[in-house]
Design a protein around this nucleic acid. Structure first.
Lengths: 225, 225
DNA sequence: ATCTAAAATGAATGATTGTTCATTTAATTT
DNA sequence: AAATTAAATGAACAATCATTCATTTTAGAT
């Protein structure tokens, strides 16, 4: 009998954070069910069933239903934290880095729109310490975008602005695809939405110097987005 | 003696806009409790208590707890629908009308940030027909903003764009104040946030003609926002 | 005052569901 | 094979609440 709510001490082959695949299955099942039907509307029984186990077993891998919610939310946030820097690192030019960041962000949102909403819907019901962790995760990813913008300003391509607020605006519009997909997807494809958003920012931010540079980039047919 | 007497007892037809004081009090109490503590975390008993009545009485004025949620959400949406057109109608100039719309929107958001979140958090748990009503309400207010933008384009102040998507972007950034106030309010006041948002749109949208006109407006010290 | 019907009460009901735990099954070790 | 430990089960438990309804209170009409 294992009383673990901490780490399962199954074979930790790779030497570390490899969570048991059981646990991961529960989280995956919970994520999907919470996303589709809501947290309160999902029963532990359903989660267990979807993961091919019995309700009782869930509690060998997780303290309670709430922890499953936390893991579902952080799971999505972590895929931002992974994808955005990866996309950014593929470029050297500051403007390209900025647009890569934005574009990666939107791509993740479009990939798992419902999961993206989890954070919006349910962060509030978690106890304060968990809430803080979620916010921290979000801020971290945001910082990456802020850095891109700062770099653009530093080389004179973007006008001076409040960088942090701007990155929040960018993230909000990215999330917007998930928040309002019921309407937006009637007017647009993701690609177009993305490009439109980027255009909005560039049109507002580019200095004349930046405009010139941006045109150059377009002409040399860089993988812009 | 009640104008409602025929309706009150037991069954209350949906879509009845008759508002008794009692009913209103229940809705107000529910709105506050749902906003602060969440829908599922709020009990009917609490709502009744806050409204100074007994739990059973709630059901004389409302079909069920869910209807209370619907009324809470539509209540907020209706204050958009009221405030935004009112603000717009105070101006003739297209650009001023646009900025008045945006500014009014943000003001309502800032006024009841938590209530604003209700729609985001809980629309999904309502049955489809109610969900549709909420979406319709939202689209209606959005349309007002779209119209402002269209007018600006028509007179050559704004560049051509996809008007509907743009109005969604504007609304998203307005909602952003409520969605991310935990962070944004550390960086900014509402006023600044508002102005920054407006600047973003104007910088991106104004034609050279529009820019000229906008400068004139600023110089003649119009009540810009 | 008396009568009548609406308004209001709040204890009881019933259904739901997160969580526990005694028990069974499977896997490892000796 | 036997013994030991871990994994897994799922029925039972306990707590929570939305909702009902028999009853009481209030207030308008006669």
């Amino acid at each position: 009998m294992s009383n673990l709510s901490s780490v399962n001490r199954r074979t930790l082959k790779a030497g570390n954070d490899m969570l048991s695949d059981r646990r991961q299955k529960f989280v995956a099942a919970a994520t999907e069910l919470f996303s589709n039907n809501g947290f309160h509307e999902t029963t532990v029984k359903q989660i267990a069933e979807k993961a091919g186990a019995s309700p009782g077993l869930v509690y060998n891998y997780v303290r309670d239903k709430e922890e499953l919610l936390l893991l579902a939310i952080t799971g999505v946030l972590e895929s931002y934290k992974e994808e955005v820097p990866k996309a950014v690192s593929r470029h050297d030019d500051p403007i390209l880095r900025f647009s890569a960041a934005l574009s990666a962000y939107v791509r993740v949102v479009a990939d798992k729109p419902k999961a993206t909403l989890l954070a919006y819907r349910y962060t509030a019901i978690l106890p304060p310490p968990m809430r803080e962790r979620i916010k921290d995760l979000e801020v971290e990813t945001n910082q990456i975008i802020s850095d891109c913008i700062t770099a653009c300003i530093a080389v004179g391509y973007f006008k001076e602005t409040n960088v942090d607020v701007l990155s929040y605006r960018a993230v909000l519009l990215a999330h917007g695809w998930a928040l309002k997909s019921w309407r937006l997807s009637r007017l647009h494809g993701v690609e177009e939405y993305m490009n439109g958003t980027l255009d909005l920012f560039l049109a507002a931010l580019l200095t004349s110097n930046g405009q010139r540079h941006y045109k150059d980039l377009c002409e040399e047919g860089a993988t812009l987005r």
